[in-house]
Amino acid sequence: MSDPKTFFLDEEEIPFEEGQTIIQAALSAGKFIPHLCYHPEFKPHGSCKLCTVRIDSRTVTTEDGQSVKIPGRAAASCTTPAQEGQHVESEVPEILDLRRTLVQMLLVEGNHYCPSCEKSGKCMLQGLAYDLGVMDPHFPQYFSKREVDASHPDILLDFNRCILCELCVRASAEVDKKNVFALSGRGNTKHLICNSESGKLGDTNMAATDKAADVCPVGVILHKRHGFEVPYGQRRFDIAPISDNPVQYAPVKEQV
């Protein structure tokens, strides 16, 4: 049996198996790379860009003897295969600044009012914001006009919080085989829709037991009549910050 292949993540040697992406190998090794649209049970999407890393930066010596760093290429670690000997930078100031800015843009694009959101304390966007040290939204609030769809008997959709990660779209299509959700529109009018004639969730065949009902990383898809049942101190990210939970989902290698 040959030695496992390895690459370097922030100078730490990480083993990987052929076909694994950088984020898969990192999470399997207990190393957290921030992400929102990535989920090990679904095909990589590469849209949120939170998992962006810098690959194979080089240091060269100039004619006058000075060392100069040539930045490597930036890539989404959820769609980039791990390669032998690769040098990957994740927890470096430049990348952390980029992630912080992405989170700030997501926070102002939607209407994320954490104090009254049931997902507060278990929301990945909020968890990442805390972890990245986001102290304010920085950008002007969009105040997007978005609706609540309460037409389904068991599930409520609060579109105010949608980050367009398409996890619900993928879960409904790939696992539930129902195609309940889709994205519509382009640019800053892009939005989540329900595939029914009325456009209402209540007119789809979604069930509260569907995979799509529990996959939302933020507070869009909520089970009705349940809110704030977990006290402060016992919520997911009260117990440990998001970066201390490197394996957010049980990786399912064979589905990659």
């Binding site: 104090p115 009254s116 049931e118 609540v148 309460a150 409520l156 909520l222 009705k224 349940h226 704030f228």
Partner: peptide, 14 residues
Amino acid sequence: EGRPYWEVPVLVQR
């Protein structure tokens, strides 16, 4: 108005 009822006790205390 328009918010789910289970949010209200947490929302209005603000």
